[in-house]
Design a protein around this nucleic acid. Structure first.
Length: 415
DNA sequence: AAACCGTGGCT
DNA sequence: TAGCCAAGGTT
């Protein structure tokens, strides 16, 4: 057996683009992960995957991508949906502005571009929610344009290859951009099925995600180790310091006939954080002092760690409605949130029946009255409809953990 | 141009 | 009840 050469510990070779992309592509062919959006010949699907992947882990996107495509299979279907339904499909993914901008962009493409997605990075860049990275990603992956993507992975890989520290300055950004573009392989002379640029871009990101990781990179498995000036972690800048806050939310349930209902409040339209989304009603923190929550969860939002306490109470049930719309609503699974809201009773503070089902627990039934109803509108929803609503990720997490909302069945991948 | 926008998993 | 940060874009 021939002795295999061990990874060279010699001084790094100069960065030769042909050597680099040959080594990278060879590695990629062997190690590329089988992701649902790979090998899909639909630019809309590529677009959707790139939006979902913005600042979001691959594992998280895998769970949501298929479901979204099944519900909105085309740009036109997405354009014709209402925003609440789009947000419901996005619920839990975070950065909800992405969903709103994707929705608006789909409407723009449908109305102004005859349903045709632009084919170049330059034109794609004009769509809402599509910036430098995403426009290059769609153009190269879906249309084979020779344009380099620069995301967090590519930036880290190139800084390490070049032996540079992290630096937000314009000069370093330009250097990264130029280096990335210089490594793009030449286009095939004739039109073929092959997409060297799209593959190269994905390979760069794959390398950063699986080998050239932020901490503890696996340099001995790196296909371009011999071209790398760093071979390990590079110098990074300071991170903004995290904050901590304690908040409380209330889970209120009632029975209407045989149906279980949950009270949710809609966040203000002008809220900076998750506007218009539904959530468990927030409780003033001083209303729960000394009380023990039924659940504690940590929930980080950007640079704030929220330490969340959940309190729960049940209020007396109501008889089934005389004109019972409830079954209809529960059965029509793709009805909109708007319909659901208008068909359901809005909470009228005067009508809250403060009657304990279990006598002698009056203390715990005071929490609903602690909610300042003036600034939030609250609605009752059947528990069965919760998966179809635009609820915040925190509310989704809590409702699942408390068994109020069933975990939606994962969508099977279509072969 | 620095700050903001969500969430989950890993260490 | 700590910190990091991911296939970024917008303001």
């Amino acid at each position: 057996m021939k002795k295999r050469s061990s990874p060279s510990l010699d001084a790094p070779q100069p960065l030769d683009p042909a050597v680099f992309h040959a080594a990278l592509l060879k590695w990629y062919k062997r190690h590329a992960r089988d992701l649902p959006w790979r090998g899909v010949d639909d630019p809309y699907a590529t677009w959707l995957s790139e939006i979902m992947l913005q600042q979001t882990r691959v594992a998280t996107v895998i769970e949501r991508y298929q479901e979204f495509l099944l519900r909105f299979p085309t740009i036109r279907a997405l354009a014709e949906a209402n925003e609440d339904d789009v947000l419901a499909l996005w619920s839990g993914l975070g950065y909800y502005r992405r969903a709103r901008m994707l929705h608006r962009a789909a409407q723009f493409v449908t109305r102004e571009l005859k349903g045709k997605l632009p084919r170049t990075a330059e034109e794609l860049r004009t769509l809402p929610g599509v910036g430098d990275y995403t426009s290059a990603a769609i153009a190269s992956i879906a249309y084979g344009e020779s344009v380099a993507v620069v995301d967090g992975n590519v930036e880290r890989v190139l800084l390490r290859v070049l032996g540079r520290p992290e630096d937000k300055g314009a000069a370093t950004r330009a250097l990264i951009q130029e280096t990335a573009q210089s490594l793009i392989p030449p286009q095939p002379v004739r039109r073929t099925r092959a997409n060297p640029c799209g593959d190269h871009n994905q390979a760069m990101m794959e390398l950063g995600a699986t080998i050239c990781t932020p901490r503890s990179p696996l340099c001995l498995q790196c296909p371009v180790l011999e071209l790398c000036q760093t071979r390990g972690e590079h110098i990074t800048g300071e991170r903004t310091q995290m904050q901590s806050r304690t908040v409380a939310h209330l889970l209120v349930r009632r029975r209407r006939g045989t149906r279980e209902e949950v009270l949710l409040s809609r966040r203000p339209e002008d809220a900076s954080l998750m506007p218009n989304m539904l959530e468990l009603p927030p409780l003033p923190i001083d209303a729960v002092e000394g009380l023990e929550p039924v659940l504690r969860v940590r929930h980080s939002i950007t640079n704030t760690n929220y330490y969340v306490m959940i309190f729960a109470e049940r209020i007396a049930g109501l008889p089934p409605q005389t004109e019972d719309l409830s079954d209809e609503i529960a059965l029509v699974t793709d009805e909109t949130v708007t319909h659901a809201v208008s068909d359901l009773s809005k909470l009228d503070p005067e009508d809250i029946p403060f009657v304990a089902e279990t006598p002698g627990e009056d203390d715990e039934l005071s929490l609903l009255s602690a909610i300042p109803t003036a600034q939030t509108d609250m609605f009752w929803f059947p528990a069965t409809r919760l998966p179809a609503l635009a609820i915040t990720g925190l509310t989704r997490k809590v409702l699942q953990r408390l068994g109020v909302m069933q975990i939606p069945k994962p969508v099977r991948r279509v072969p």
